[in-house]
């Protein structure tokens, strides 16, 4: 579904990604793990067209989307739940969800249906639908960010550090909902520092080190890999 071929990415003159190649097949949860600053977020931002990628190719459903403007990539069916959640603090929960629905605004009839779906996943959002986004707790904001991403009914959902800053109990809850989202038919590319969690719920994984993919394979195998264990799982 998504393929990156030898992608180089730059922030100004600083090269953040070195020939990164990865693939996500339809129906999968693929995780991208790595230390802080390894280039995980940059990879997602490159896919979304936010970071410039002068070399390499990004293909989505066989179509070259390299260098396309962000809104057109979103309209193709990729949604991104960015790092730090970035919900709209001065919009209500409902309005935030409405913004998530933006790529499909020409089909207002489906709005209610999608709303029900995300409310089933995150019932707390329904309780707080008229509250301003900025007044929600961290966990609720993360749920809102996920729900907002789902409102676009994306084919591929990019998740950037969904567990960051959450209490362990909430982390588990969020991970469960990711599995649930995937089961309902959304392909997921998950970026996580919490490697154990990420590997537990994903089918396959990539390890990113200073802008280069070093190890990749099925999640189960990665969890058994000695190097991964010592560097990322702390065992």
């Amino acid at each position: 579904m998504l393929r990156l071929e030898k992608v180089n990415a730059f922030y100004g003159h600083i090269q953040a990604l070195h020939e990164v190649s990865l693939e996500v097949a339809e129906g999968e949860i693929v995780c991208l793990i790595g230390a802080n600053g390894a280039g995980k977020t940059t990879t997602l931002m490159s896919i979304m067209g936010v970071v410039s990628t002068p070399q390499g190719k990004i293909l989505f459903e066989g179509e070259d989307i390299t260098g396309r403007p962000t809104p057109s990539i979103v309209h193709k069916g990729i949604s991104c739940v960015p790092e730090g959640r970035r919900i709209f603090p001065q919009l209500t929960v409902m309005e935030n969800l409405d913004m998530g629905f933006y790529p499909r605004r020409d089909r207002p009839a489906e709005f209610e249906e999608d709303l029900e779906r995300v409310f089933r996943l995150f019932p707390v959002l329904e309780e707080r639908k008229d509250q301003l986004g900025g007044t929600l707790s961290g966990g609720q904001q993360q749920m809102l960010a996920l729900a907002r991403g789902l409102m676009a009914r994306p084919k591929l959902l990019l998740l950037d550090e969904p567990s960051l800053g959450l209490a362990p109990l909430l982390v588990e809850q969020v991970m469960e909902s990711i599995v649930e989202i995937n089961k309902q038919g959304t392909t997921v590319l998950l970026v996580e520092q919490n490697a154990l969690m990420a590997l537990e719920i994903s089918h396959r994984g990539y390890v990113l080190e200073t802008g280069t993919i070093t190890i990749s394979g099925e999640s189960g195998k990665l969890m058994a890999d000695a190097q991964v264990r010592s560097s990322y799982l702390g065992t």
Partner: peptide
């Protein structure tokens, strides 16, 4: 309003 509050996030919504 979304653009005013968070331009990047708004662009990620396809705006």
């Amino acid at each position: 309003r979304a653009v005013a509050q968070d331009r990047l996030a708004a662009m990620l919504m396809g705006i």
